[in-house]
């Protein structure tokens, strides 16, 4: 789920690209032959410009070279890097895009072969509304869902981690709880404070509603001083996240899959 910012996509990256890079050459043989005859492919460029590209030497179609197989009963959604919102981020960012994730979740919900979802998180946070959209979609699924926080599940990754029926964190993973802020912006009017507060409330309310932590405690962790070098907030490592009631258990893949199987056997979702 990388992102490759189209030129002039509204980001600082687009603004600085030379005009000559706006035109993107076609990859020969691709658009007309895309499987399914679906929508025109979204195009992303990395800046090669109009350099003449040699003709693709495509192997002839070979429809039979992939064995027929059904769906895995448990589908895996990876939430990595930055969760991208309405603006394409510069290409050095690894991102998760909601336009990929939301249709995947719909497909999982509707596919009768799929019995459950495992969400794997290693994210540094990202866009508030895109993150909440993904979290709400996961929360509203009828099939059993689990999450595993690996590496990190920070900032807007927290609501996604808790949106499932049963959440896990490996002992080495961390979750950073900190306030939403507009870095580098001079806040001159009270309405800006109110807007930030409202955005923050949406995150806090979702986390509190979908975990065992109280609102008071979550805000306390969010505004704690002395824990982070350059910010207010708290870093929860593995077991700390369980102790605070954010995450259900310390565990990895084996525990998460066992939990999914148990929920399927019981014919439903865990009580949160």
């Amino acid at each position: 789920m990388d992102r490759y910012a189209p030129p002039g996509a509204g980001s600082a990256a687009g603004a600085e690209r030379p005009q000559a890079e706006v035109r993107v050459p076609e990859i020969p043989g691709l658009p007309a032959g895309i499987p399914d005859g679906g929508d025109a492919p979204a195009r992303h460029e990395g800046g090669e410009g109009d350099a003449a590209a040699p003709e693709a030497e495509l192997t002839p179609p070979s429809a039979g070279d992939r064995p027929a197989q059904g769906k895995s009963p448990f589908q895996a959604l990876t939430v990595i890097g930055q969760i991208e919102g309405h603006v394409s981020l510069p290409s050095q960012n690894k991102t998760t895009r909601y336009e990929h994730v939301l249709p995947q979740l719909i497909a999982i919900e509707q596919d009768p072969e799929v019995q459950g979802l495992i969400v794997l998180l290693n994210t540094v946070g990202g866009d508030v509304e895109a993150g909440l959209a993904i979290a709400e979609m996961i929360r509203s699924m009828s099939k059993p869902t689990v999450s595993v926080v690996l590496g990190g599940g920070h900032s807007i990754g927290v609501p996604i981690a808790v949106a499932v029926d049963r959440s896990f964190i490996v002992s080495t993973a961390t979750m950073t709880i900190h306030p939403i802020r507009l870095s580098g912006m001079v806040i001159g009017i009270p309405q800006t404070y109110e807007y930030l507060d409202k955005m923050q409330d949406r995150v806090v309310h979702f986390v509190v509603a979908n975990s065992r932590i109280s609102q008071e405690r979550y805000r306390e962790l969010m505004f704690r001083t002395g824990e982070l070098a350059r910010d207010v907030g708290t870093i929860l490592v593995g077991r700390d996240a369980v102790r605070e009631g954010l995450i259900h258990e310390v565990g990895g893949m084996a525990q998460a899959l066992a939990s999914l199987r148990a929920m399927v056997r019981q014919g439903g979702r865990h009580q949160r």
């Binding site: 990256a13 895309i34 399914d36 992303h44 990395g46 410009g49 510069p90 290409s91």
Partner: peptide, 14 residues
Amino acid sequence: PADGPAAVLWEEVE
């Protein structure tokens, strides 16, 4: 902004 032009052309297909 990304440092310098990337060397590859990307295309995303369904």
